[in-house]
Amino acid sequence: MGSALPEPQIRPAIPDDSASLAALSMEVWLGTYIRHGVSAFFADYALDTFTKLMFEAHLADPQERFFVSQNRDGIDGFIRLTKDKPAPGRPDLTVELTTLYIQPRHQGRGLGAALMAHGLARMQAEGAEAVWLAVNSENTAAIAFYHRHGYSHAGQTHFRIADQAYLNEILTRPLG
Rank of each mutant, 00 (worst) to 15 (best):
M1Q: 08
M1P: 08
A4W: 13
A4L: 14
A4Y: 12
L5K: 15
E7M: 12
E7A: 15
I10K: 10
P12K: 11
I14Q: 14
D17K: 08
S18N: 06
A19N: 07
S20K: 11
L21K: 09
A22M: 13
A23M: 09
M26K: 15
E27L: 15
V28H: 01
W29F: 15
W29K: 11
L30N: 04
G31A: 09
T32P: 04
Y33M: 06
Y33C: 07
Y33I: 09
R35E: 12
R35L: 15
G37F: 09
V38Q: 08
A40S: 12
A40D: 14
A43T: 04
L47H: 15
F50W: 15
A57R: 15
H58M: 03
H58L: 05
L59Q: 15
D61R: 10
P62D: 13
R65T: 15
F67P: 03
V68G: 10
V68I: 13
D76Q: 14
D76K: 06
G77T: 06
G77E: 03
F78M: 02
F78G: 01
F78T: 04
F78D: 00
I79Y: 00
R80M: 05
T82F: 06
K85F: 06
K85A: 08
P86K: 11
P86R: 09
P86Q: 05
A87R: 02
A87T: 02
G89N: 05
R90I: 10
P91C: 04
D92R: 02
E96P: 01
E96R: 14
L97C: 06
L97A: 01
L97F: 01
T99P: 00
T99N: 11
T99Y: 05
Q103A: 15
P104I: 03
H106P: 00
Q107V: 01
Q107N: 04
R109Y: 14
A114V: 03
M116K: 05
M116P: 03
M116L: 14
M116H: 06
G119L: 02
L120W: 00
A125Y: 05
A125H: 11
E126Q: 13
E126C: 05
G127D: 10
A130Y: 00
W132R: 08
N136S: 09
S137M: 06
T140R: 15
A141S: 13
F145G: 06
H147L: 04
H147W: 03
R148A: 09
H149A: 01
G150H: 07
G150T: 04
Y151W: 15
Q156N: 10
H158F: 07
H158C: 00
F159R: 04
Q164Y: 03
A165T: 10
Y166M: 01
L167C: 06
I170M: 12
P174I: 00
P174M: 00
L175P: 08
